[in-house]
Design a protein around this nucleic acid. Structure first.
Lengths: 159, 159
DNA sequence: GTCTATACCCGGATAGAC
DNA sequence: GTCTATCCGGGTATAGAC
């Protein structure tokens, strides 16, 4: 395991166990038993750690969707993955992507299963993605009322 | 204009002119010609300023939607408002709402026009809101490819 | 090459004087 | 109601030890 991979793994563990605000250079370093400034020998800063996490998350999301064959299944899988990895989901999807530092093809691979299920219709794929993204974020942020039937909202969105 | 209103106005101006990261207690205080600790005599902290901003934004968004009569119009109006006030939009919609400190009815009033256009179907209203929210956020974050036809994605989502 | 120590600046927040 | 002083924690740069 390279040092960069160790840093990524430590960062992910922090996100999972303590949430998004816990992703600090000092906390990552603590997990690895080193001091924060040492991290800068391996990564350029916190932004790059987030890019590494985004690449990992997008890969997993793509794999997850690829196991489904219809839109309902993909919606369920999308929601389940996001709610199981909320902090990582946010890091991977709610900020501009540094595409320079991302291996080429990561985004395309993540989108491919959905695009295939929609027979290559990019506009519908983008609408589906936006619907899923919006539903997941609103749910994670507690924006729906306590008694909202979130499954029914998904069903309504998928027509 | 009460001191709280002045604080809210200064915070909003900061968001508009310098973006989300510029919303700091020190910057707000500078705009008012006072020192940051003095703000705490009027508001409990940055969180409360964000709640005040969210209330203002939700009110405006509701008024904007109320001027439209169909879903397409509301989608256009939603997108236009969000892109014209991106930092405020984010503050108002991408974090848990402190409902204790929000005047009762603010959320309901913002949602009412949409709910009416959908004949009271809450599930479809939530799906529409999520679609609009997702499309706006993905656009603001530069997550769609350069050459994506975003209008077409909206049209595809609205069926 | 890898790490440590140190230091700087910024941001939120509090305590206490005027 | 405003100030000054102060604390804490976070990102990051630099210098130097091993």
């Amino acid at each position: 395991m390279s040092r960069r991979e160790e840093i990524t793994a430590a960062a992910r563990a922090l996100l999972e166990e303590e949430g998004e605000e816990a992703l600090t250079m000092r906390n990552v370093a603590d997990r690895l038993g080193i001091k924060a400034p040492s991290l800068y020998k391996h990564v350029s800063g916190r932004k790059e750690i987030e890019t590494l996490l985004a690449a990992e998350a997008l890969g997993e999301m793509g794999e997850t969707l690829a196991r489904e064959s219809d839109l309902e299944g993909m919606g369920d899988a999308y929601r389940t993955w996001a709610l199981a990895n909320p902090a990582l989901y946010r890091v991977a999807t709610t900020r501009p992507l540094d595409r320079e530092k991302l291996s080429p093809g990561v985004e395309e691979a993540a989108a491919a299963p959905l695009l295939e299920a929609l027979d290559g219709d990019r506009d519908r794929a983008r609408a589906f993605w936006a619907l899923a993204h919006g539903l997941v974020l609103l749910e994670m942020d507690g924006r729906f009322p306590e008694d909202a039937d979130i499954e029914a909202a998904w069903a309504a969105g998928l027509d």
